[in-house]
Amino acid sequence: MRLPPLAPLRPGALAALGAPAIAMGATFLAFGAAVAAAGRGLGWAMGASLLVYGMAGQLVLLQGGGVAPAVLGATVANARFLPMAMALAPWLGGGARRWLSLPFIAITPWAAAMRVLPGLPAPARLPWFLGFALASWIVAGLATALGHAAAPLLSPPVLAALLFANPLYFALLLAAELRLPAPRRAILAGVLAAPVAFWLPSAWGLLGAGLLGGTLAFLAGLRRGRG
C-alpha cells in the first residue's frame, strides 16, 4: 500500500501546536512527574499517556489498588470516549480510513474537531483530525517524558499551576461554544449536574454527571424542536 502524502495533515497539526499543545503538554508534564514520584518507570508513564491517552483514566491507573479495580476504574473514568467517538464518527467519513483515528479519540482532539470539522469540505476532515491528533499525541508523549525526568525539579505549586492549565483550556473552549443553543444547553446542564459526582464513587462521578446532564439537555432540545 502506498503511504498517503503528509501535506494534508499539516493544517490540523499546526492548529494543535498552539494553546491545545500548551494545555495538554502542561497536564502530561505533571502526569509524568506524578508517575516518577510514585516510583514507576518511564516506560509505564509513556504507555499510560500514549495508549490510555485520557487523563482521568491515567490518574486512576496510577492510584493502583489491584488489577481489576484499576482497570475498571480507568475504563469508567474514560467512558466519555464512547459518546465522544459517536459524536465524532459522522464527521470522519464512511470509509475504512476513519479507523486511523481510533487511538487518538480523546478530549482535546475531539473538542477541536467538533469546532472545526463541520466547516471543512468533507475530504479535508479526516486529514485535519489526523494531523491535529498526531501532533497532540506526540506533544503528550514528549511532555510525559520531560515531566518524568524533571520530577525532582517541579515543586507542588508549579505542578498545581500546570494541572490547572487543562480545565482552564476546556473552560475557554466551552465558553466559545455557548453562543449555539444545543451546546449551551449541554454545557449548562453539565455544570448543574456536576454535584452528582459527590454522591458517586470517584471513578463514576464524572460519567454520572455527564450522562445525567447530557441526557437532560438532549431531551430539552427535543422538546424545543417539537414546540
Binding site: 449541554a186 453539565g190 455527564g210 438532549f218
Partner: peptide, 21 residues
C-alpha cells in the same frame, strides 16, 4: 438523534469536569 445525544453527553461531561476541577 443518537449522535446528538452523544454530543450532549460529551459536552456535559466536559463542563462537569471543568466545574469540578
Amino acid at each position: 438523534p443518537l449522535v446528538a445525544w452523544a454530543a450532549a453527553v460529551s459536552q456535559a461531561t466536559l463542563s462537569a469536569f471543568v466545574a469540578l476541577a
